[in-house]
């Protein structure tokens, strides 16, 4: 970790400012400043920026590779890839469908794992708690920042994919899975809805990750545990003999985002995924609250 990396709140940043001004942590303005400071921490870290650059590189690689070696159209291409040559719009969908399998969840798992354990490890957690920021508010801000990060990386992949696709292949009316076409504007709306749905799924992972992060003071441990949970969920979901278990898995409903690309959209098909995510969020945020508010902060 280089000294230049903004690993923690710099003097004068709002989080540190709360130390200097007792009472500033009360009320919404204090929380708002804490939240902004948290976002600056997440998006300002070099390692997080490097990770986001990797996430953004994938759609570009997909677009260029498809441009150089277009699919022959004989079938057998991975989903959405066959449609890329006709419409650059599909680079965004192809990139999302590839990255939701591993890269996006791992990125969220890393941020969530680091959120509380990272502060504890650096010894900044007790300072945060000595200023009048209640533990509940601290957890709320940490979780809100994770959700914002999940939305940001999902949109990042979609927007980079869209731009790369439009530059290399051009746009036009979007062919849906059902075989009919909608205008480019409605296509964009549907892409936005896909990003929203994926963010809900990733937020459920963020809740689980936040809970794991309150269990330990070792951020690497929490990050690795979160990553293993994601990969284990994906692997179990791929074993057909365990189909009784699949509806309970965190990642099971994520690919249902394709429902938004049918015509007409069957919104009831999205309900199980949203309910499952809500259940994960309720259980693990309350577990994180039980663990964090009750534990002794020693570092």
């Amino acid at each position: 970790m280089s000294a230049a990396e903004p690993t923690t709140r710099a003097p004068g940043s709002p989080g540190a400012g709360a130390v200097a001004a007792p009472g500033a942590g009360h009320g919404w303005s204090g929380t708002g400043r804490f939240f902004r400071s948290e976002l600056r921490l997440i998006f300002g870290r070099r390692r997080n920026q490097a990770g986001m650059a990797v996430l953004a590189a994938f759609p570009v690689i997909i677009a260029i590779a498809t441009r150089i070696d277009p699919p022959t159209g004989g079938g057998g291409e991975a989903d959405f890839f066959a449609s890329i040559t006709g419409n650059g719009f599909f680079v965004a969908l192809a990139a999302l469908s590839v990255e939701i399998g591993l890269f996006l969840p791992v990125a969220v798992a890393a941020i969530a794992g680091d959120s509380v354990a990272g502060e504890a490890n650096l010894g900044t957690l007790r300072y945060l708690l000595t200023v009048p920021v209640s533990r509940n508010r601290l957890l709320a801000v940490k979780y809100a920042a994770i959700v914002v990060f999940a939305l940001a990386v999902t949109l990042l992949v979609a927007v980079v994919g869209l731009v790369a696709g439009l530059v290399l292949f051009g746009g036009g009316p979007v062919t849906l899975l059902s075989g009919n076409q909608v205008g480019f504007g409605e296509g964009l709306l549907r892409l936005l809805a896909v990003c929203g749905y994926l963010t809900v799924g990733l937020s459920a992972l963020g809740a689980l990750g936040l809970f794991v992060s309150t269990l330990t003071e070792q951020p690497m441990g929490a990050i690795i545990a979160n990553t293993i949970l994601v990969v284990a969920s994906q692997v179990l979901n791929a074993i057909p003999q365990l189909d009784w278990l699949h509806p309970y898995l965190l990642t099971h409903y994520w690919l249902n985002f394709a429902e938004l690309l049918r015509d007409p959209v069957a919104f009831e098909a999205l309900r199980p995924g949203l309910l499952s995510a809500a259940a994960y969020i309720v259980i693990f945020i309350s577990a994180a609250w039980a663990r964090f508010a009750g534990r002794d902060v020693t570092s």
Binding site: G73, G75, D79, F80, A82, S83, S97, L177, S178, G179, L255, N256, A258, R262
Partner: peptide, 29 residues
Amino acid sequence: VALLDTLGETDVIRNGSDVWFWDSQANEA
């Protein structure tokens, strides 16, 4: 009738005397 795959769809559509068979993954009608 539309058979839904995770990221695809196969449709059999009858309208009057026309019958269409659409396979989104093969991109074939």
